[in-house]
């Protein structure tokens, strides 16, 4: 199989590289402390996830009787009841979350990239003022803005619509800041000058020169925003009244806060939480390679 052969060749190349590297570099201490610290960090991050994974397999009767990390037998019945809950409303929430996170992150990335490019590469009056306002915007947590945004959207008649959740997340100061920094570093002025001399319009420069160079940075922004919107609770909680527009966070919360006299549906919540992190994990695994290109392209220079 070619793939197999390719893989072994790559492996060979890697080992060669590594041994040469090892030969050249002076012997370094093993770095027990940093490794230990990283392992601790990994455990800290993975423990809750594994708890969710194990708990999702427990049936309602087992959830509070089995010991914490002992798997139960109820995974499939949990999935079934989650699927059946209110006619499969969970999947609607999942779809909504994809729309909010995917659409919001995409729009936000585009807006950030264009604004970051403009701020990094053009001199115009008010540039520093705009940038300083954006920097100030980073300091204002989005949570504080949720209520004023709700009041504004109510005035516009947009509360309780998809736009109410999408629009406020598009302009994200930190992403613009990141895009500006990235554009300043990744796009050489000489390249833009060369383009101009060749007669390219500014829009063409943006599309053909700037944006392709900024892709690794844009991927970072996209991932940041995607995860932020995916996990966002307060904004959709306040903005949305119709439970068919809820994202997963707010939807699952209605299962948890079922009112004082109704039991919380823990099994469904835990199973739902497990399912809701799968798309995030998938996204990170597929997007990771863009970060690697970023590192390697930096090395080439």
């Amino acid at each position: 199989m070619t793939t197999q052969r390719d893989r072994s060749r790559i492996q060979e190349a890697l080992t060669v590289g590594r041994s040469r590297h090892a030969a050249e570099a002076p012997r370094r201490p093993l770095g027990l402390a940093p490794t230990g610290l990283l392992i601790l960090g990994a455990i800290y991050c993975l423990l809750p996830v594994s708890w969710v994974l194990v708990s999702a397999t427990k049936s309602p009767g087992e959830l509070f009787t089995l010991s914490t990390f002992q798997p139960g037998t109820g995974l499939f019945s949990n999935l079934e009841s989650l699927n059946a809950y209110r006619g499969g409303v969970f999947w609607l929430w999942m779809l909504n979350t994809l729309i909010y996170a995917g659409g919001g992150a995409l729009l936000s990335t585009l807006v950030s990239a264009v604004s970051g490019f403009a701020l990094a590469k053009y001199r115009f009056p008010g540039r520093n003022l705009i940038f300083n306002i954006l920097i100030g915007g980073i300091l204002v947590p989005a949570v504080v803005l949720a209520i004023p945004q709700y009041l504004l959207f109510s005035k516009l008649g947009l509360a309780d619509t998809y736009w109410a959740v999408l629009l406020p997340q598009i302009l994200h100061p930190y992403s613009i800041y990141l895009a500006r920094i990235y554009a300043a570093a990744a796009i050489p002025d000489s390249l833009l000058e060369a383009g101009r001399i060749d007669g390219a319009t500014e829009f063409r420069l943006l599309r053909r020169v700037a944006l392709p160079l900024m892709i690794p940075g844009m991927v970072t922004i996209f991932l940041f925003q995607f995860v932020a919107i995916w996990n966002n609770f307060l904004l959709p909680f306040i903005m949305l009244g119709d439970d068919h527009k809820f994202p997963l966070t707010v939807g699952l919360y209605t299962l948890l806060a079922a009112g004082a006299n109704q039991p919380s549906l823990y099994n469904l919540i835990i199973t739902g939480a497990l399912l809701s992190i799968i798309p995030l994990i998938a996204l990170f695994l597929t997007m990771q390679r863009y970060w690697r290109t970023d590192l390697s392209s930096g090395a080439v220079k």
Partner: peptide, 20 residues
């Protein structure tokens, strides 16, 4: 429209009422 119950629901309703 099924909401999260309890105190949060009350706060949300009051906010919505203020917003009109």
């Amino acid at each position: 429209s099924k909401q999260a119950g309890g105190d949060d629901a009350a706060a949300k309703f009051l906010t919505a009422a203020k917003a009109g």
